[in-house]
Simulated scan of single mutants.
Amino acid sequence: MSRSWSQRPRRRYVPRPPRSLWRRLLDYALTAVLLGLFILVAARLDRFETRKEQGMAIVNDGDSITLGAERIRMRGIDAPEYVQTCRKDGADYPCGKLARQSLVRLIAGRPVICSGWQRDRYGRLLGDCKAGETSLNRAQVQAGWAVAFGDFETEEAVARASKAGIWAGSFDEPQDWRDSHHDQPVERRHGTLASLGDALREFFRFR
Results as ranks from 00 to 15, higher is better:
M1V: 14
P9I: 04
R10P: 02
V14F: 03
P18K: 01
R19N: 13
S20K: 06
W22M: 03
R23P: 09
R23T: 14
L25M: 01
L25W: 06
L25T: 00
L26G: 15
D27M: 11
D27N: 02
L30H: 13
A32Y: 12
V33Q: 13
L35C: 04
L35K: 05
L37F: 07
L40W: 15
A43Q: 14
A43R: 14
R44V: 11
L45D: 05
L45P: 03
D46L: 14
D46T: 12
R51A: 00
K52W: 10
G55C: 04
M56A: 13
M56C: 09
V59I: 13
D61H: 12
D61S: 08
G62V: 04
I77M: 06
V83W: 10
V83G: 08
C86T: 05
K88W: 04
Y93I: 00
G96C: 04
K97F: 11
K97H: 13
K97C: 06
A99W: 07
Q101R: 07
S102G: 09
L103Y: 03
V104R: 08
I107C: 02
P111L: 04
V112I: 11
C114H: 00
S115C: 07
D120Q: 11
D120P: 07
Y122A: 08
G123P: 07
L125R: 01
L126S: 05
G127D: 04
D128K: 03
C129S: 07
A131N: 03
A131L: 09
G132M: 09
E133L: 05
T134S: 10
N137G: 04
N137P: 04
N137I: 03
V141I: 00
Q142N: 05
Q142C: 07
A143K: 02
V147G: 03
A148E: 07
A148H: 07
F149P: 07
D151W: 09
E155A: 00
V158G: 00
V158F: 07
S162D: 15
K163H: 15
A164V: 09
A164E: 00
G165P: 01
I166C: 03
I166N: 00
A168L: 09
S170Q: 14
W177E: 02
D183K: 11
Q184G: 12
Q184V: 15
H190G: 08
H190V: 01
G191N: 02
A194H: 10
S195Y: 09
L196S: 06
G197V: 12
A199F: 12
L200A: 15
L200W: 15
F203V: 07
F206T: 11
F206Y: 13
R207H: 14
